[in-house]
Design a protein around this nucleic acid. Structure first.
Lengths: 162, 162
DNA sequence: TATACAATTGACGTTAACGTTAACGTTATG
DNA sequence: CATAACGTTAACGTTAACGTCAATTGTATA
């Protein structure tokens, strides 16, 4: 016989507080997500410990991602159910793909909005620099230092992305 | 005398429900934002009608934007106060610029995360297409139609952004 | 196998962000 | 100028997303 044990069945090894630590949240929150139908960890018997595998981990990642972008748990749940649909049915796949296209378009809109915000903030910062340059006493040593510091910050603002 | 009236003082003409309709929210929400210190419309006398000008409109836009991206009203308020700081004080300007740099970096992180999500969704969609292609009965007329439809959707997913 | 430690199930508490209603004042309009 | 339509304050209600116990029950370990 070759190797002793490759993998039991489907590795489900992480306990709830391990998972919680890993993601910087509380066990209570994880149980709540389950209560909302967003997670379904394995158990050996009902009422024994919950055991989380990679699939659950990926789900949780998705949940927290959704939350960071302001989606409610219900909305996140809809997405999860959608992408969980049976992939043996051609029609199901088509529905999922169509919704997926919608989601990608939404993401693109958000990216565009974020880029607009970025540009607005830059303009705002540049206008501040102008205020400094045109201020009374722009000749003083202190002001000159401010102006060069501000110029550098704005450079970093512009440079960061692309 | 030349013109009769150029602009009263600073145009503040919009009533609360006009503004609410304009942004698709309720008057109550607008009053609540004021209660939180995020808006401060003019009044002719205390306890007369609130009147909103362009500045308020811009604020409200910012508030709703923040909300769309999952920020709390308190966080939004902090940002507003920051960018409202007295621009005659050099030191104030510097603080604002530094915070602004932080915000831009945060925005960039978000954009990157959104682009990652986009890419993951695309991979997911492509894997679905593979499932279709390798499915039993990929030769049937129905399946062939699904495959071409799916291919087109994925093309639109890829093509949308850049 | 005792015992400490972690997990489980209620159940109630909390906070943000409004919704809703009531009682009353203000403004526009036929 | 009457009156409908809109606005104002005040106060209580609601919902989502957990936090915080407390009382048990599983689980790891000396």
């Amino acid at each position: 016989m070759g190797e002793p044990e490759p993998v039991p069945e489907k590795q489900a090894s992480t306990t709830i507080s391990q998972l919680a630590d890993e993601f910087g949240i509380t066990p209570r929150a994880i149980r709540y997500y389950e209560e909302c139908g967003l997670l379904s960890p394995q158990r050996k018997t009902p009422s024994s410990q919950r055991l989380y595998d990679e699939r659950d981990r990926a789900r949780l990642k998705l949940i927290l991602r959704g939350k960071r972008f302001g989606y409610s748990l219900t909305e996140i749940g809809d997405v999860i159910k959608l992408y969980d649909a049976d992939p043996t049915q051609g029609k199901q796949i088509m529905r999922t793909l169509e919704y997926g296209l919608g989601h990608i378009q939404e993401i693109d809109e958000r990216i565009e909005e974020l880029e607009e915000i970025r540009e607005e903030m830059l303009e705002f910062a540049r206008s501040f620099l102008e205020i400094l340059k045109n201020a009374d006493g722009a000749e003083t040593r202190e002001m000159k230092e401010y102006i060069s510091a501000a110029t550098e910050i704005i450079g970093r603002m512009e440079g960061a992305r692309r």
